[in-house]
Amino acid sequence: MADTDRVRWDDKYAGRPSGPPALPAVFTGYTDAIPMTGHALDVACGAGSAAVWLAERGLTVWGVDVSAVAIEQARELADRHAVSDRCRFSVADLDHGLPPGPPVEMILCHRFRDPRLYPAMVDRLTPGGLLAISVLSEAGSQPGFFRAAAGELDVAFADLQALAAGEGDGQAWLLARVKGDRR
């Protein structure tokens, strides 16, 4: 990511107070599918509200984001909610791929889209691991560089077992498991 993009995201987060721990609204109806133990990776975690929510649920979470400002806010949020022992946050330029690490039981990716990372996300999940991804979409909106084409998530993650999905109003999302035994 260009330095100008990193600065833009830092500026965006610097002017925004961090919110309470919360799962992205698109997934709130599916909390029963979200594991309560194991490890999770929050891709483009922002200020950490979802990562801290997952840690409060019982997961050990690694959140990554390009913005150092957002990462600092995420660490502070984890401290305030007494889950810093289950949260790790790192600045990472996802243009270089997912940071290396062990397999995880869950990956959350909310409002970040880079189709080059889709195969790496699947590869990082354990058998039975859960992918929760939402992206901006052209479905019900105007085309744009950061928007997924209609059906993109279904095609990209066709090898996973879809639990729920939706597309419209400028958003596409998918909740899916890696086929195989649950760990």
Score class of each variant (00 low, 15 high):
residue 2 A to P: 04
residue 2 A to E: 15
residue 2 A to V: 04
residue 4 T to W: 10
residue 5 D to A: 15
residue 5 D to I: 15
residue 6 R to V: 15
residue 18 S to M: 08
residue 23 L to G: 01
residue 23 L to R: 05
residue 24 P to Y: 06
residue 26 V to N: 01
residue 27 F to T: 03
residue 27 F to L: 06
residue 28 T to K: 12
residue 28 T to N: 13
residue 30 Y to C: 01
residue 30 Y to I: 05
residue 34 I to E: 00
residue 34 I to M: 14
residue 34 I to A: 10
residue 35 P to A: 09
residue 37 T to A: 13
residue 37 T to P: 04
residue 39 H to I: 06
residue 40 A to I: 04
residue 40 A to F: 03
residue 41 L to S: 06
residue 41 L to Y: 01
residue 42 D to T: 00
residue 45 C to D: 04
residue 45 C to P: 01
residue 45 C to V: 07
residue 47 A to V: 00
residue 50 A to E: 04
residue 52 V to T: 12
residue 54 L to T: 01
residue 57 R to I: 12
residue 57 R to P: 07
residue 58 G to W: 11
residue 59 L to K: 08
residue 60 T to L: 09
residue 62 W to M: 03
residue 65 D to G: 09
residue 66 V to Q: 11
residue 66 V to W: 05
residue 67 S to I: 14
residue 69 V to F: 11
residue 70 A to W: 03
residue 70 A to S: 08
residue 71 I to H: 07
residue 78 A to W: 05
residue 79 D to Y: 11
residue 80 R to V: 07
residue 80 R to A: 14
residue 81 H to V: 03
residue 93 D to G: 11
residue 98 L to M: 09
residue 101 G to R: 09
residue 103 P to S: 09
residue 103 P to T: 02
residue 105 E to L: 00
residue 106 M to Y: 02
residue 107 I to L: 12
residue 111 R to K: 14
residue 111 R to T: 10
residue 112 F to H: 13
residue 114 D to N: 15
residue 114 D to C: 02
residue 115 P to G: 07
residue 117 L to F: 02
residue 125 L to F: 08
residue 126 T to E: 07
residue 129 G to C: 08
residue 129 G to D: 08
residue 133 I to R: 01
residue 135 V to C: 10
residue 140 G to M: 08
residue 143 P to E: 00
residue 145 F to S: 15
residue 147 R to V: 07
residue 150 A to K: 11
residue 150 A to L: 01
residue 150 A to P: 06
residue 151 G to N: 13
residue 151 G to D: 11
residue 151 G to F: 07
residue 152 E to H: 06
residue 153 L to V: 03
residue 154 D to S: 15
residue 154 D to F: 00
residue 157 F to E: 00
residue 157 F to W: 00
residue 158 A to F: 13
residue 158 A to Y: 09
residue 159 D to G: 13
residue 160 L to I: 03
residue 163 L to S: 10
residue 163 L to W: 09
residue 164 A to F: 11
residue 169 D to H: 14
residue 170 G to R: 05
residue 171 Q to K: 12
residue 171 Q to S: 10
residue 171 Q to V: 15
residue 174 L to C: 02
residue 176 A to I: 02
residue 179 K to G: 14
residue 180 G to T: 05
